[in-house]
Design a protein around this nucleic acid. Structure first.
Lengths: 221, 221
DNA sequence: ATGGGAAAAATTGGCGCCAATACAGATGGC
DNA sequence: GCCATCTGTATTGGCGCCAATTTTTCCCAT
């Protein structure tokens, strides 16, 4: 029995691609709705509603919900159902602190591998964020912000670190979503983006660390 | 803000207890078998085998496997099955680097909240590890090591950080399991444990950071 | 003998139905 | 008039069966 050993090297090793499949797609869709606030904290997620709204099969719904439970985005009460997790101040603070550690910790790796074209790309993304300040939706700004920070983290050369931070961000964005509507804070974020790009260009690790820390701490303060 | 509604203490907020339920129990059992090496890397996990070996229902098996996929411990190929993930040097290195960032980043938090009794507890756990050097099994040593580092991380006052590191550790322990059999390295780890306790007692954050970094880097080098 | 191909066995994955449980509303007793 | 209980309804969760796909085995042709 046991002996399986994959003859073909197919699969796994190089496959960060990972065909998402329908269940993951649904899970991501629901995660997006939760993070965007479409699904309010505490709201019950009835399987039938999701099944009809997304035109999905019952099993996919169940699997997606189970996946969201593991991502800590929804809570499952046996024989009662699933509901959106309610923002927990303590938890949000802890995750925020972890993000500070991870993203400031990534700075050294970033500086070590930094090329001029990476700085240029960061500048481009910062400008894209800025261009959306006026007429972009909140979601557009959110995406542009993700793109900027994702690029920055990607420069660390550690995909796992990048994925981890994105996962953590997904777990508190719902709590922070309300904060994102304040205009002054978005403009402050924009200024900090450019400051970070300057720190990058100057290869000033200490300054970048300081900026990243302040940036994260203000986002979900 | 974010009202701490929790009328009933039940559910969500404070429930680190989280009734594991059958599916999680199976997932943990399989995870243990993978990390202990009972299930070899690359080996195919047939649903029927697991169903019979663990006396579980088919659905629980499927759910547990799906959960392990999300934990990145097994790989799923549609219509082919699930197999244990093969140790990937690059991935292991990335996770190891993330651990360095997290555990060295936790040092400041640890020092800020450190009490004398915490140092005493750390010393106790270090001694327990040492006492197992001679006649403990590899698994005993592994557990004692986990306990020591878990205590250390717990001192940071950030349960999320602790949980995150444990999760990361679980994803590479299979790869590092082979390394744990070298005696000299275990003794080196033991010495470093006591050095860390000394750094704790001296409230020397820089020294502790240096020790933690070296300790993690050597474990899964 | 060996390679290709087809049938057979095994395994996975999906879908539907039905029981178990919780919720809502109505009814009756105090 | 209010509270407890009971009934009806909606929702969840489990279990089994069957189709789809893959892997293995066997046979035949070259």
């Amino acid at each position: 029995m046991a002996g399986g050993e994959a003859k073909r090297a197919s699969g796994q090793a190089g496959s960060a691609k990972a065909r998402s499949g329908r269940p993951d797609a649904l899970a991501n869709a629901l995660a997006g709705e939760i993070q965007s606030g479409a699904l309010a904290p505490g709201q019950w997620l009835k399987q039938i509603d999701i099944e009809q709204r997304h035109g999905a099969k019952r099993m996919d719904v169940r699997r997606a919900l189970d996946r969201l439970v593991q991502k800590r985005l929804v809570v499952h009460l046996p024989n009662r159902g699933y509901h959106v997790v309610k923002p927990d101040g303590r938890l949000a603070r802890e995750i925020r602190d972890v993000r500070v550690i991870l993203e400031t910790g990534a700075v050294d790796g970033i500086m070590a591998r930094l090329r001029d074209e990476d700085v240029a790309e960061a500048l481009r993304l910062a400008r894209r964020f800025e261009s959306l300040l006026g007429k972009g939706t909140v979601i557009d700004l959110h995406d542009a912000n993700i793109a900027f920070h994702g690029h920055l983290l990607g420069l660390s050369g550690n995909p796992e670190l990048t994925a981890l931070v994105q996962e953590l961000r997904g777990r508190i964005s719902s709590a922070a979503a309300g904060q994102w509507q304040k205009r002054s804070r978005i403009e402050q974020s924009n200024r900090e983006h450019f400051a970070m790009v300057e720190a990058l260009a100057a290869r000033d690790a200490a300054a970048l660390r300081r900026l990243v820390r302040a940036h994260i701490l203000q986002d979900a303060a």
